[in-house]
Amino acid sequence: MKAGVKSSGKRWKRSTDKILMWQVLLFMAGVLAFAVGIYRDEVRTVLMKAIYICLECIGIG
């Protein structure tokens, strides 16, 4: 085993917990924000932009 690997075991476990905490937090925030966006009807703005040719995208507008 490489030097330092064993001694860093605890630290590694802590970082695992921290990453898990971030994953849960960000995912939940994502679900919430996504739902709020749908509730505010932002989807309509997206759809309206997407179903007409975007002149800026194609270099005309």
């Binding site: 994953q23 960000l26 995912f27 925030a29 994502g30 679900v31 919430l32 924000a33 996504f34 739902a35 709020v36 966006g37 749908i38 505010r40 932002e42 989807v43 703005t45 997206v46």
Partner: peptide, 17 residues
């Protein structure tokens, strides 16, 4: 109408995470 996009924020958070 909007000055912040929760829909896209949520999308990026979900896909990114």
């Amino acid at each position: 109408k909007y000055k912040i996009s929760f829909y896209l924020l949520g999308f990026f958070l979900l896909i990114g995470t």
